[in-house]
Nucleic acid binder design. Structure first.
Lengths: 269, 269
DNA sequence: CAGATCCATACCGTGAAGGTATCAATTGCC
DNA sequence: GGCAATTGATACCTTCACGGTATGGATCTG
């Protein structure tokens, strides 16, 4: 019924070396023991894993699949045990779910500088279900763009993320204090990432070299400031609403601390 | 050294019930056995997991952490074993990595209808490292926007995804059959999709409420059609290059089949 | 054909897991 | 306060899985 992790490790070593003798040596056990363990493992699983001749060891389809699974499972178990030991040493932990569209680096940097003892787990989510890790308990906080008000979640709007126009410092508009969307009419706007740029850095390269102007959220503008680029607030651009969702059943010190930090970040602008 | 999954299951059951007797009953073992196994488990891990009095059972911090880990580990192991059994029954499997910005549903639907015997694993990636699952063996195929030519990956451009202008249905241009980039001069263009700024849904909200026009790939236009939006092909807009990356070390029938399907999809338009 | 290589089998000792019987401690009732 | 009930821990026994050594059978090599 339970998968035996020791046997899984034995199997993974044999699969890696394709050789019982060398695998046994690596595992610090005698070769006959390894043969017997693998055989027993195959019986427990109910399927053959290895095709052995006296001169070669090959993987069956099931064996190949199990080998790939083992390469996921074994390190993840080791990491889990490490986290348990950390918790035993008093390390607090906060798992934050975020969709790729949301910029969380500032809040996390600020939070970790204040709470150096708290370990952060970043859990990437699929953008169409940003609340999933929250619901299945894998995260305590989730970043969302729009407002979910589904049951069991507590939504905390942490502010409008204002948008900035990013342009070359030499651009005529760069002398202004702020802009409106009307000022940008007729400007060449970069719809990135496009065929030439996919990284945000390349985007700023393009802007700096005069290929156009882009609208970016405050947090991006702040973290990519360079002397040859100007960022101007666009007063009437629709802000991007960012929310934090927290599960209703947990309200500890760490969680409250992060909410405060995240809110403060956006407020400060 | 190896975590004992049986003991982990025992512990998880005790943690769930907070009661040795009932947990033992659920596990179909005698209560003293359970007590001894938990004690042994704590010694193996090197930390206390439970605070027991004769009338109550509580979790320590380490115990709480381990309980959460167990809720991830145990189902994932069961799923892994299922996949191994599937593989043993001849079920082929294909893991596809994709960043949220890339639309893969059409290709997958088409592929599964042709290869009903192949199980698809969808692996969401962080957009800044879309090739990660490929490199660590968790996926056989990765969707990318731009051309990575890093070592060990084989890049297959599967075509230009033509771009459509998305605008309110009431917009003057919406009556046209097709557009050129010149027609869009002076229009307010929305700087999305930008993985750092906005969800797709929000983008279409903005467009519908008259805040601008956006260029979107065909696949996105097709899957987000709504009555108040119009999508018109832009004949001279540079297409968005979509690539598939495959690990160089695997070239089986299933993988080749998917490449063909994905290419055909984009060709058909 | 002889020797080397390599995996499998046979057999043995140790220890962990499961069982039953019972103890010790706390709670609750009278 | 004392007694019964509840609950987890301990003691002791049996079985079986895991480790070891010795050896067999098959295949490749010179």
């Amino acid at each position: 019924m339970d998968l035996d992790l020791r046997k899984l490790r034995y199997f993974a070593t044999v699969a890696e070396h394709r050789h019982f003798g060398r695998a046994a040596e690596r595992l610090f056990i005698a070769q006959p023991v390894l043969s017997r363990q693998i055989k027993s493992f195959e019986q427990e699983l109910g399927c053959k894993l290895l095709i052995r001749t006296t001169r070669s060891v090959e993987l069956t389809a099931a064996g190949q699949q199990l080998y790939e699974e083992a390469q996921q499972i074994l390190p993840s178990i080791a990491a889990a045990v490490r986290r348990v030991h950390d918790a035993d040493q008093g390390v607090q932990r906060l798992a934050i779910a975020f969709s790729p569209g949301l910029y969380v680096a500032d809040a996390i940097r600020e939070f970790t500088s204040r709470h150096a003892d708290v370990e952060i787990d970043l859990i990437p989510t699929r953008w169409w279900e940003p609340d999933r890790p929250l619901r299945d308990g894998r995260a305590q906080i989730a970043y969302l763009r729009r407002q979910f008000d589904e049951s069991g979640l507590h939504i905390v709007p942490i502010g409008q993320d204002p948008r900035f126009a990013c342009m070359p410092a030499a651009h005529p508009l760069a002398a202004r204090q702020e802009l409106s969307m009307a000022d940008l009419d007729g400007e060449r706007m970069l719809d990135v990432p496009n065929r030439r740029t996919s990284s945000i850095e390349e985007k700023f390269e393009l802007i700096a070299s005069g290929h156009g102007i882009a609208l970016v959220p405050l947090s991006v503008a702040r973290s990519y400031s360079r002397p040859d680029l100007a960022h101007l607030p666009v007063t009437d651009a629709p802000g991007i609403e960012t929310c934090l969702a927290v599960a209703t059943d947990r309200h500890d010190r760490v969680l409250r601390g992060f909410l405060e930090t995240a809110t403060a970040i956006l407020r400060r602008g």
